[in-house]
Design a protein around this nucleic acid. Structure first.
Length: 288
DNA sequence: GTACAGGCAGTAT
DNA sequence: ATACTGCCTGTA
């Protein structure tokens, strides 16, 4: 019973994992913005139906990574006692596969702020620069394209509450528009090569690059270390690290930590990160 | 007022 | 290499 349902998935738990920002609860359903699509999760009692508008048959499998062989993945991660416990405790939690452009813009906005603020910035961006869509009598806005953002006025971006991130947002939009950054190519590259490309962009450092690699470019070995993960490691994995860990990281410490985490958790370290992150937030009583 | 929040680049040692 | 600093903005 327990192992049989370990490969189940719970879309609502997954969208509340804190790694995707443009979701909202309305009329007993959840609505998310996925590039040009609205994704709707309806249903109750843990039995959910996922639809997308415009309609797409493959989008559910795509965004919830139902193509991943989680039995194999989880079997590898069970070697770690804490992760083994969390896999059962948070059954149904998956990683999500986000739309790369939206993902990169989102995590650039995420630097040095909190989730309510990130959501505000992204909803503002969508409302101002996205296309209006209607569903169930509700109003939604698609996520704006890099082209649109590259042409946007600085003052309009500032009005979205982006603050000093505008410079980075512009740099990201530019590199996409000029083709200097190409997600298809990055997906085919190795983790390290793709990361090197991403971090060339102004405003994209280690952490943001790892988030984009894991959440949108299928690099499951990526192990983003934000303050929450750092705290989880300090608390539960101090033994993994020679020098003492603190939850403030210099760039060199960041590399050291992700490398060791990857060594310890293996090629699916990103899944371990997802469960650790969810666990920390859950324990902190987060409900944003 | 002021500390702080899911990093980053710039500058000085 | 490593440490220190400022940064938009909103909230507690």
């Amino acid at each position: 019973m327990q192992s049989a349902s370990l490969d189940s998935y719970d879309p609502v738990r997954t969208i509340n994992s804190g790694q995707v920002f443009l979701w909202q609860r309305q009329l007993d359903s959840w609505y998310g913005i996925y590039g040009q699509h609205i994704v709707k999760i309806s249903g109750t009692r843990g039995i959910h139906k996922v639809n997308s508008y415009p309609k797409s048959d493959s989008i559910q499998s795509r965004i919830f990574r139902l193509d991943d062989d989680v039995r194999t993945i989880f079997a590898e991660l069970e070697g770690d006692p804490l992760i083994k416990r969390l896999l059962t405790k948070y059954q149904g939690l998956r990683l999500m596969r986000q739309e790369p452009e939206q993902c990169l813009f989102s995590f650039v906005c995420a630097s040095n702020t909190n989730i309510p603020m990130i959501r505000r910035m992204l909803f503002n961006l969508a409302r101002r620069f996205g296309s209006r869509m209607a569903l169930d009598g509700l109003e939604f806005y698609s996520f704006p394209s890099a082209d649109t953002i590259s042409k946007a006025r600085i003052s309009d971006l500032l009005a979205c509450g982006l603050g000093y991130r505008v410079k980075a947002i512009k740099a990201v939009a530019e590199s996409i528009v000029t083709g200097a950054l190409d997600f298809r190519t990055l997906t085919k590259m190795s983790y390290h090569d793709a990361k090197r490309q991403l971090t060339q962009i102004y405003g994209v450092g280690n952490k943001i690059a790892d988030c984009v690699l894991l959440f949108s470019l299928d690099k499951l070995e990526a192990f983003p270390v934000d303050v929450w993960i750092a705290r989880a490691l300090v608390k539960n994995y101090q033994w993994l690290f020679e020098s003492k860990l603190s939850d403030k990281l210099t760039p060199h410490q960041y590399d050291d930590i992700t490398d060791r985490a990857r060594q310890h958790f293996g090629r699916y370290a990103g899944y371990a990160q997802q469960y650790l992150y969810y666990h920390m937030r859950h324990q902190a009583g987060a409900n944003w």
